[in-house]
């Protein structure tokens, strides 16, 4: 059980943004993070897809948590998650075909995204419905914001645009490497470094 008096309901919601950010701190869900963030809009779509899947599966897992026998809980979680992922995939194919094509197999790969299984196992299967929902929404919003940031940096440097709007003039020399796989690894590496620096600054401030 989580310590309520310590964090409070609001704490469950906000921890996903910074202190327990799924990407920057827990290093979960790296595959979609690196693969789809060639532009901010793709990052946003991926984040929203994860938001839907994580929220719905946390809700269901939390409701049925006392009925599932311990031995078969992981397969049950995976089947629940896979069902919602199929729904998102069909939705994207029906209404946003271009984005669905651009994201390719990374929408179905949400099934094995460790963030979702991790939250189901570590949180939703042990907590009340309302807390699980807050936790799920908080964590996936933290995920989404990080994806937009990473996608934004890569889009701005790689194409000179942000959400399709031109940021730099036509004279801007595009850094094509940012759109290719090495750019993803290196940008995320430096984002982790930046987070460490900011954390240390806060630590020093608190001490003095």
């Amino acid at each position: 059980m989580t310590d309520l008096s310590n964090k409070g309901i609001f704490g469950e919601f906000t921890k996903g943004f910074w202190k327990e950010n799924p990407i920057l701190v827990m290093l979960l869900g790296m595959c979609p993070t690196l693969a789809v963030t060639t532009s901010a809009i793709k990052g946003l779509t991926m984040g929203l897809a994860v938001l839907f899947v994580l929220t719905c599966s946390s809700l269901i897992v939390s409701i049925v948590r006392n009925i599932i026998p311990k031995q078969v809980r992981i397969p049950t979680f995976i089947v629940i998650i896979a069902t919602f992922v199929t729904m998102v995939d069909l939705f994207l194919k029906a209404f946003l075909l271009d984005l669905s094509k651009a994201l390719g197999p990374f929408i179905p790969l949400i099934v094995v995204n460790c963030i979702i299984l991790g939250r189901a196992e570590a949180f939703a299967s042990r907590n009340r419905v309302i807390l699980s929902l807050l936790d799920a929404v908080g964590v996936s919003l933290g995920f989404t914001v990080t994806l937009i940031l990473l996608g934004g940096i890569r889009e701005i440097l790689g194409m000179g645009t942000f959400f399709g709007h031109v940021v730099f003039g036509p004279r801007f020399d595009q850094w094509v490497i940012m759109l290719l796989p090495p750019g993803a690894f290196i940008t995320l590496g430096f984002m982790l470094g930046a987070k460490n620096i900011i954390d240390r600054k806060f630590e020093e401030k608190r001490k003095s």
Partner: peptide, 23 residues
């Protein structure tokens, strides 16, 4: 390694350089 980049950060940057080589 510079202090803030220790751990996962430098591993990711290394992976980036490796990906560059594989290109």
């Amino acid at each position: 390694v510079p202090q803030p980049l220790k751990g996962a950060a430098i591993t990711l940057i290394l992976a980036g350089l490796l990906a560059l080589a594989f290109m």
